[in-house]
Write a protein that binds this DNA or RNA. Structure first.
Lengths: 223, 223
DNA sequence: CTTGACACAGAACAAGCGTTCGAGTATGAT
DNA sequence: ATCATACTCGAACGCTTGTTCTGTGTCAAG
């Protein structure tokens, strides 16, 4: 038998492949003994031996003492998704739907999936929500009719963040970059050719959320 | 205690929530006893009792006899991802990088993951590629500096599709909605307040790809 | 009041499973 | 020849876990 001191060998690869195929078929990882059977390894300790090596190589994660507590870490086409509920539409003349305190992603009727890798770790696991943009009123925020905006609930914002604000005196919802200034707030359109809106401190300004992502799908050429 | 013969009740929901949160934290499903502890159920048989009901309701899948062999069906945090290679940048003054014939998504250094559910079935499995937008030159396409555009390779386009075109006489790359007309082609900016570009048939116009999605991440407020 | 479905507790069983240990073999370097 | 390293085997240990069985209390219908 060929000996290889470093790196992963044929047997390592066979185990990895088996774990992947088993997971696809059974929806859960195999046990150590199942790996042994299908990879012609007669002893569970040997499988454990290889599993340890694969873990050291960073190709595998193990939850010790847990049945079938292993998972592949490689770039497999399966990965974490964030299921973000679409709470409704956002348009200039209407307030923004806000997640109810007890809203539940499982009950949400409409959702969009976002690859977790696209989201900064801060936003992961937070109670993100999404809104469909309706109308052309957000054009100065570089956001078009039909776009999807992903929001994080917030009542405050730091300079430079894009926020969804409700200007109650104007009865208007808008998406702008937020800057706090001496006399009040500056709401800067994303489109650099457009001028900012200045809001005095006396005027009402309700921050409803921070925009963390905008998604535009281009398939709507059904016409 | 309130009795509910049909549908899912408070306890069912609590179990579902716990499974989801446990899975997020531990990367594997909980055991029956762990569910019992965290949901104030003292007997494993009762947990099993509820799990059976949830399975009948279609909210849960179970692999009997398998440790932790359960998974949520409604919201599976695992799903299909499309790993799209980022081939480079797109900017007005430069041609578009085009996928090599033998390009390999796994070898690609930079990739973005897109949930397969976001993509229409036509685009799935195609050799999509992504480009980073550099500069403000695509502003009339409602695309900002830093955005990511997902493209499908194409040499032709139908009316209404957004395409990436290379105007070799102007040495310019641009993203526009494409319309074929009598005298030539009309390149319509996404921003409806801006005027289209007319291109005569005699003038060179190379379609490089169709835009299928635009993604804008809002985290770049490091400044 | 009786009956039966429903919701729950507790205990015990048997199988599944990861871990550990002792021992053996082959390879390559010293 | 010696020795360390890499690899393999088999068995046993003991905890984990799903399953099942018996029993109790509640509530509504007949």
């Amino acid at each position: 038998m060929v000996r290889k001191s470093k790196g992963i060998g044929e047997r390592h690869q066979k185990i990895l492949d088996f774990i992947a195929s088993y997971q696809r078929e059974h929806k859960h990882p195999p046990s150590i003994r199942e790996i042994g059977e299908h990879c012609d390894i007669s002893s569970t300790s040997v499988v454990n031996y290889y599993l340890d090596q694969l873990e050291k190589e960073g190709l595998l994660e193990r939850s010790r003492k847990i049945s079938r507590g292993m998972r592949l870490t490689n770039n497999s086409p399966l990965g974490d998704l964030l299921r973000v509920p679409v709470l409704g539409v956002i348009q200039a003349g209407e307030p923004i739907p806000i997640p109810a305190s007890d809203f539940n992603p499982f009950t949400a009727e409409d959702t969009v999936d976002i690859a977790a890798s696209l989201m900064s770790s801060k936003e992961k696991g937070k109670d993100l929500f999404a809104l469909h943009v309706q109308g052309d009123s957000m054009i100065d925020a570089m956001i078009n009719d039909g776009d999807i905006v992903i929001l994080k609930p917030a009542q405050e914002a730091r300079n430079g963040e894009m926020v969804a604000v409700w200007l109650s005196d104007k009865n208007e919802t808008t998406l702008k970059y937020f800057y706090k200034e001496k006399e009040g707030y500056r709401l800067q359109p994303a489109n650099p050719t457009m001028k900012p809106i200045m809001v005095k401190k006396s005027e009402p300004l309700e921050i409803k959320g921070k925009v963390v992502m905008v998604i535009r799908k281009m398939e709507r050429l059904v016409a």
